[in-house]
């Protein structure tokens, strides 16, 4: 993987809005953002209503996912360009999610919705009608997804990266500061996890930093290339951003996203927790 295989620029996107076989998909934390204006021809995925199981805390299954993409008019061979607000947090989450179900031709729009807006590029409220397809999801790829038992076992043995803000890592905040402070039962982080806030991988306009800057960032944080890596945040969306940087842009192997993240870990009984700015002991 290289940057050019996984990212497209706003200029490229603007020139390819009508290109057959290319589908733009908006995924936002603010699920109403699309309705107020989106890239011409783009369809919407709602990370909560479309991508989460309506009953249990998990993803929709492969059959439901196949129906979802079929209904949206996305084919297995289409190149899907994902973009969204919040520096592509949820677009990166959808990228990781589509990777989990084996979609091959995926890109993120570098800078996402924010750069598009700051550049004063055109948005429309017109909702496209795409003919339904018969999409077939592949078997879930657990090589990119970590579950809680694997995370507990990783303490002291694998690279754990907590990508939340320093105040969330230390336990001074429980959620990102634009959300009410609630969620996990307690604050803190998984012992031995380094804190590399996802935001350090992005420029102010939401685009990703250069390969050189990204390599230096994770090297400084002591990321050991020889070990497997698990990234987490609060609910797995910001850590998808970091998973994207490590796995897709920098080409690290064996990188997983722990989507249960702190909202799950910080509510588990009996697991070790570290408080404050230090990593803590295994």
């Amino acid at each position: 993987m290289a940057r050019s295989d996984v990212l497209v620029s706003a200029e490229w996107a603007e020139a390819n809005l009508d290109t057959p076989g290319v589908v733009f998909v908006e995924v936002d934390e603010d699920t109403d953002a699309y309705d107020g204006g989106h890239l011409a021809g783009a369809v919407k995925l709602d990370w909560r209503a479309d991508l989460q199981d309506p009953v249990k805390r998990d993803f929709v299954d492969a059959q439901q996912f196949s129906k979802l993409l079929s209904d949206r008019g996305i084919g297995n061979d289409d190149t899907v360009i994902l973009y969204g607000g919040n520096n592509n947090w949820f677009a990166a989450y959808a990228y990781w999610y589509l990777t989990y179900y084996g979609h091959e031709n995926l890109r993120l729009l570098d800078g996402g919705r924010k750069k598009w807006e700051l550049d004063s590029r055109e948005l429309t409220t017109e909702v496209p009608s795409r003919e339904a397809t018969t999409y077939t999801a592949k078997e879930p790829n657990d090589d990119v997804r970590a579950f809680r038992d694997e995370v507990v076992e990783a303490i002291g043995t694998k690279n754990l990266i907590d990508v939340r803000s320093p105040d969330e890592y230390a336990g001074r905040l429980l959620a990102p500061a634009h959300l009410p402070q609630e969620a996990a039962q307690i604050g803190g982080h998984i012992p031995t996890a380094g804190n590399v806030p996802w935001s350090k991988a992005a420029n102010d306009d939401g685009t990703f930093k250069s390969d050189e800057e990204l390599k230096e960032l994770y090297a400084e944080a002591g990321l050991d290339d020889a070990k497997d890596t698990i990234a987490y945040c609060r609910i797995g969306e910001r850590s998808s951003h970091t998973w994207f940087v490590l796995h897709e842009v920098l080409g690290h192997q064996n990188v997983k996203n722990y989507d249960g993240s702190w909202s799950e870990y910080g509510s588990l009984r009996g697991v070790p927790v570290a408080l404050g700015d230090e990593r803590g002991e295994a």
């Binding site: 803000s165 105040d167 935001s199």
Partner: peptide, 25 residues
């Protein structure tokens, strides 16, 4: 929203009426 060390903590787009809100510490 940047913390006391200048580190990014959160970001929001302004509403249709130009407004924003954070729940900080």
């Amino acid at each position: 929203l940047l913390d006391r060390t200048g580190e990014f903590t959160a970001e929001v787009p302004t509403s249709a009426t130009g407004q924003f809100r954070f729940f900080a510490g």
